[in-house]
Structure formats: C-alpha cells, structure tokens
Design a protein around this nucleic acid. Structure first.
Lengths: 209, 209
DNA sequence: GTCTATACTTCGATAGAC
DNA sequence: GTCTATCGAAGTATAGAC
C-alpha cells in the first residue's frame, strides 16, 4: 500500500517553520523567513496552511503524537514501576535529542502561558502527563514509591532535562569565557543522572530526610 | 543623604518593558507597546536607553544583581552545606515568586541560545552558578554529598522550580478542561519538595541505587 | 501547486520643537 | 525631559495568472 501522497513542499515548510519558531518565537517568526528557509514562495505557505497559528499547531502535533505513543507503550510493559520510569526518562532524553527544536518551542510557549495551545494540543500534552502520573500511582500502590503531588513529581522529572538541554549554548559560552569550567556530559551520563535523581526522589525511604 | 534622583518615567519603562519582554520575547516586543504600557512617549524610551537591547540588558541586571547578592550571603553563613543548599533553594523560590516576569524572560533567552546576553550578564549568571557549585564542593569535602557534575547538579536544582512555575497557566487550563485534576501547591509545599529532592539527589548514600 | 504583485499594518529609530 | 511627526523597512495575508 502506497503511503498517502504528501507534497515535498509541505514537509519543507514544517521543517523550516520549526527552526524559525524555535529561534524567534511565534510572534517574531516571519512567514517570509519561513518561506525563504523552505525555498518556497510565501503564498505556498498559505496554500498549505490557513495561517501562521495553524502551521504552528501542526508542528506541535507532529512531535507530541509519536512521543506520547512511545510513552504509552512503555507504560504497558509488564515490569516494575521503577523500570517503567527509567524507560520514560530514557525516552524523553531520546526524544529531546532527536527533535532539538522542540524544547525551545515548548519553553517559549510556556513563557506566554500557552496562549497558542488549542484544546487538542493540551490533550496531547496531558496524555503524557497522565501516563507518568499513572506509573507513579502504580509504584505507590506497590509500596515502591512515596506518595507525591503529581505535578511536582512530573516537573521534577522533566525540569532537569529541559534546563540542562536548553542551557547548552550558554554553558558553552561561559566555558569559553572562563566563567565556568564544565566537563562534557554524554548521553549516558545524562540518562543515568536523571534516572538516579528520579529514583531517589520517589524512593519510599532514605536516611537523609 | 538623599538617594540619587531617578526619574519616575525610567522606572515605569523598565517595569513595562519587563512585562512586554516576558509576554512576547525580545524580537516581538514592541517599543511602541512598551511606551503605551508605561504611559510614556516612544521617544522617551530612546532618551533613557540607547536601543531595545540596552533596555533589555538593564532589566536582566536589575534582577540578577540582588539575587546574586542574596545567594552569596547565604553561602557565607557558618552552617552545614546541606543547610546552605536549603537556604539557596528557598531564596530562589522567593526570588521567582517576587519577580514573576523574570523566568519567562530567562527561558526565552535560553531558547535562542543566549543571543542577547552580553559578557557582563553572563558574569552575573555565572556568579550564582559558581556559588552553588562551591556549596556542593564543600559538602563533598565534608563527606555530606556525593560528587556530581556541577551543571547536572545545578540544573537539577533549578529545573523543577522553573518548570513548575512556568507551567502554572497551562496546568490551570488543563484542570479547567478536566484533562488533569491537580491539587493546589502553596509556597511551603514547593520549598519542602525542592529541598527534599535536592537533599536526596546529593545524599552520600541511600538504599535505592 | 506554484508564482508575482500588492494591500495594509506595524516596526525600530530619528529629527526637531518646546 | 517630553512631545509630534515621520522615514524606511519589514510584517501578515490575499488576489489572480499560469
């Protein structure tokens, strides 16, 4: 079965628009600039998409949908809650590594209160949050995890990853200027650190509190 | 002694500009809009500041300077590294609560790689990072903390706070739409959670790894 | 599907009167 | 210190030919 015919120009527009929205934000992103980057005429964009907001929404959907699917499939495994959480963390590291433009877009969106998020996009975001909350609740039921506010837990998982990735260019400049000396961090170090931090945060008991 | 005379219009501009940069980002922020918000003529802005970037830099300085001072004074206390870290966490919760416009501005700035950060601003940011790293190193020396990459540790402290605060409007919309049911989190819950998570992350030994 | 041309708006920044 | 008026560039979006 042949896949549905999707014109190459549409994909080029989506890619160019991701870069533009990531680099400059929704309001400052230029349809002209997107067109130039995609090697397409500006009118072409308005042929494929209703307006700038519809284009933006399409981009978010194309990232959230597959990541959500991946997380759902991890949660369906027959393993401990702890192992599921490790899997989710690794999947998020992977996803943010594969789509480096996504975090900048997301953080800008949060910065303006999610003004450009439609109800459908919120559902997509909420699904991932719901899966992670479910894994934690499962761990609590099985005596593995300590009960915890779902939003605090979720953003304590995500926050370190997001901030570390987003700060990369600034860290690099600081290192070059001699303001800080920072050893490199490879993917495995990052995954291990995030997994260990999450496990410690949720552990039922420790000797430090 | 009388404080140095600073015209009221300059402060109104700084305040209005913070709101505008937070809500729309640097490139999309309008000098016209800032002027309207500050109840000042646009030419007034160019009288007080060289250009849009100089205005932006002034705003960042006015936040980073006092927060940096506060963190430095906490690090100078004669208490354990653990207590210092608790103090820093509380100070950061306090600062982000007092200046709700600061995090949006910072996150947008990181999203574009710190393009608008001059060397002086980087120094201001690096000072806070350096102080926290110093506290952690001190804790390691005293056998309280486990050694850890400074950037991973720092952003694991900051990340949860940043993400939790930034996501507030989206969480609220999700709750209203029934996508998630999230109990309220007051300041003390937030501080306690962040302190406990930091302590667990840095604890020399636990039974979960 | 792809183009040119253009209508209309808003932008950052400046000149110059008071 | 504060204003009006304005310039030139760039913005979103559309009309209409091919």
């Amino acid at each position: 079965m042949a896949p549905p015919r999707r014109p190459a120009s549409r994909d080029r527009i989506l890619e160019a628009a991701s870069a533009e929205f990531a680099a400059r934000g929704f309001a400052a992103a230029g349809v002209d600039r997107i067109a130039r980057r995609a090697r397409v005429n500006k009118a072409m964009i308005y042929y494929h998409f209703d307006n700038k907001l519809a284009l933006y929404t399409a981009i978010l959907r194309e990232v959230y949908l597959p990541v959500g699917d991946r997380v759902v499939s991890i949660a369906a495994c027959h393993v401990s809650a702890r192992a599921k959480l490790d899997g989710v963390v690794e999947a998020l590291v992977e996803a943010t590594g594969e789509h480096p433009l996504f975090l900048p877009i997301l953080m800008r969106e949060l910065a303006e209160g999610g003004r450009h998020l439609g109800q459908d996009t919120l559902q997509l975001m909420g699904r991932i949050f719901g899966v992670v909350s479910g894994i934690i609740a499962e761990g609590v039921d099985q005596g593995e995890f300590v009960p915890m506010h779902p939003a605090l837990a979720y953003f304590s998982l995500l926050g370190p990853l997001v901030m570390f990735r987003m700060s990369a260019p600034v860290r690099e400049r600081m290192t070059k200027l001699g303001i800080a000396q920072l050893p490199d961090v490879d993917r495995n170090m990052l995954v291990n650190h995030l997994q260990a931090t999450a496990r410690r945060m949720l552990a039922r008991s420790t000797d430090v509190d």
